[in-house]
Design a binder for these strands. Structure first.
Length: 167
DNA sequence: ACCCCGATCGTA
DNA sequence: ACGATCGGGGTT
C-alpha cells in the first residue's frame, strides 16, 4: 500500500478530485473508498468559501495541500475537505461520498452524513493527513467509470462540471 | 453584539 | 420539492 503524499495533493484540483475517486481513506479502524467528490478552486470560483477572500474560516484553504478543511454547515453538519494546490492558492476537494470497506459496510452518500458517522468535526480542521497516523489516504486499485456533473447545493457556479461520482 | 444564511438531510 | 435547523462567519 502506498500512502498519498504531498505532491499528490498539490496537483491541480480537478485532477485531484477525479483521482481521489476510488482511493482509500484510512481513519482509525475504518477503511473507506471515496465514491464522490467536488472541486472548489480559487477565489474566482463563486461557489467557494474562498470567493470572499482570506478569513478565519477559509484560512486552511489558503494553506498547504494535504491538510483538512472541516467546516460547520447549516448549524448541524460538518463537511470534510482536503486542501489542494500551492500555498496561498485557495482550493480544496469536498468528500461527498464514501463506501465503508469493513463492517458495517455502509454506503455513506452525503458530506454531512459521512462526517456524522465518522464523528469528524472541527477538531480535524487543518489536520495534515500527509503525516498523521490515524487519518491518511492510500492508493487502491480501481477501475471506476467517473461521471462529471454540476456541484450540489450551490446557487452559483452551476455551469462547472466539478462534481465527480463513481459509476 | 448581532444578523443572516448556508458546499445538507430527510420527508413528501 | 421543500422546510427544519442553528452555529458561527462576517461585519457593525
Amino acid at each position: 500500500m502506498q500512502r498519498l503524499n504531498r505532491e499528490f495533493f498539490q496537483l491541480p484540483t480537478l485532477q485531484v478530485a477525479k483521482e481521489l475517486i476510488g482511493k482509500t481513506i484510512i481513519y482509525y479502524n475504518h477503511q473507506a473508498l471515496i465514491t464522490e467528490t467536488e472541486a472548489y478552486i480559487g477565489q474566482d470560483d463563486p461557489a467557494s468559501h474562498a470567493a470572499r477572500g482570506l478569513t478565519n474560516r477559509t484560512k486552511p484553504m489558503f494553506g498547504q495541500a494535504g491538510h483538512l478543511y472541516v467546516y460547520l454547515i447549516y448549524g448541524i453538519y460538518y463537511c470534510l475537505n482536503i486542501v489542494t494546490e500551492e500555498l496561498n492558492f485557495p482550493a480544496a476537494v469536498l468528500i461527498r461520498g464514501i463506501r465503508l470497506l469493513n463492517e458495517p459496510y455502509l454506503n455513506l452518500n452525503g458530506p454531512g452524513k459521512l462526517c456524522r458517522f465518522l464523528q469528524i468535526d472541527k477538531r480535524y480542521n487543518n489536520l495534515d493527513i500527509v503525516n498523521d497516523q490515524n487519518f491518511y489516504l492510500i492508493n487502491s486499485i480501481n477501475n471506476f467509470t467517473i461521471e462529471a456533473t454540476p456541484r450540489i447545493g450551490i446557487k452559483v457556479g452551476v455551469d462547472k462540471l466539478w462534481r465527480f461520482v463513481a459509476k
